[in-house]
Design a protein around this nucleic acid. Sequence first.
RNA 1: GUGCCUGUAGCUCAACGGCAGAGCGCUACACUGUGGCUGUAGAGGUUGCGGGUUCGAAACCCGUCAGGCACCCCA
Length: 423
Amino acid sequence: MKKIIQTIKGTREFYPETLALRNYLFEKVRAASQAFGYQEYDGPFIESIDLYAAKSGEELVKKQSFVFEDRGGELVTLRPELTPSLARMIAAKQNELTYPVRWWSFGPFWRYEQPQKGRSREFFQWNIDMLGVNSPEADAELIAVAATFMRSVGLSSERAQIYVNNRRLMEAQFDALGIAAEKRMDVSNMIDRRSKMESAKWDAYVLEFGLTQTQLDGLKDVLGNFDLWKQSDELTRMFAALDAMGVREYVKFVPGVMRGLLYYTGTVFEAFDTSGSLKRSLFGGGRYDNLLADVGGQPLSGVGFAMGDVGMGIFLQEAGLLPEFLPTPASVLVTVFDESMLIKSYAVAAQLRTAGLKVMVFPEPAKLQKQFKFADKMKMRIAVTVGPDEAANGQVAVKNLSTGEQVVMKEEEAADFIQKMVG
RNA sequence: GUGCCUGUAGCUCAACGGCAGAGCGCUACACUGUGGCUGUAGAGGUUGCGGGUUCGAAACCCGUCAGGCACCCCA
């Protein structure tokens, strides 16, 4: 035991039950993406660090990437995100693609962070983006994809909400309050942090940073104004589109949502557990206008979001919304009566498989008691036994393990019979 | 990168500085052609790892690794 080499910090092992959860999310992600006509794509898992250095912040490149030297002396990194790879892929074929490009992906990513609840160093992430259309309706479509996913996993709009804001709208508010341009990045960060702090402390923090009392009061008015979106044509159109798509109840305008990412330029959104027990957001995204130009392409606007499997998995689990995953390796067990019947059992199993059934043969002669116990534990539904008596008459004994009923029948009839029972 | 908490059987957890235990699970048998239920018995541990204090350490101290919570950050 003690000699087993430990897993790398922050990595996860997927036992069959856990992998079933990951695949479940994958299926739901695929279904929601395809329902809106998005195509699946993927990028390399390792990239040059320069790809991220070009646009991402210092935190990402210097502290939170898995960077190492390959055998040729090149600095490579395990991809911490997909968007720069996407931007490059689009830029490389910018004039051949048919727009709008609607692409999605689900794959592994790595970030060198402190593992904690909802966060590991190796995780899967759903990325979905539309590029080439800059309209509030396109923003709405991405949010609708997200809401469709939420609905498909049983998340009601009471349990989780997508909070929406708009960078341009906020810029206008900052203008009106006379907040200097160089202070806005920090002010944005403070706004993001506000929900985590006591109100009085936050006020003091903002004043200490250098805003005037008037600016602070004005800022608090803005953050408390949930009708502010009506001043924005973009958001007004977006909400109308969300209404038409039937997902309006999942979306709420919240002026305190800013998102840390530098590259967002318009609408931003982030989904939260309404009970607030999971402090991390479930997913987040927004509109970006400059990303392609940053990697050397022609300017092209896009909108998209990303969702990690870890946080969403925990949330669904805690909400009791996960189906019971019973990774059944086979639904039928063919028992092995004794040494002389071993070959016969394999033949019977092969016959059943040609009918499309999932069939396992007990690997060796053993007490039937043990074999049935095995079938029970593996949650198999049918046990087929061929003993000397049955074999002599060209028959097999088919037992329904949930009802306990056993029927002896002609070998040829077994497949049909079982298929009807398994459904 | 920072702070606090935790680490004992496969799992969940007990054990005042003094014999390492329970429940569940597992294996076998009761039940030599049939699972679930029940009963009986059994296996399973260098107490995460390394050092120190002590007559004596699972417990106390230091280090380290891993996990949890919160910072930082959240692409």
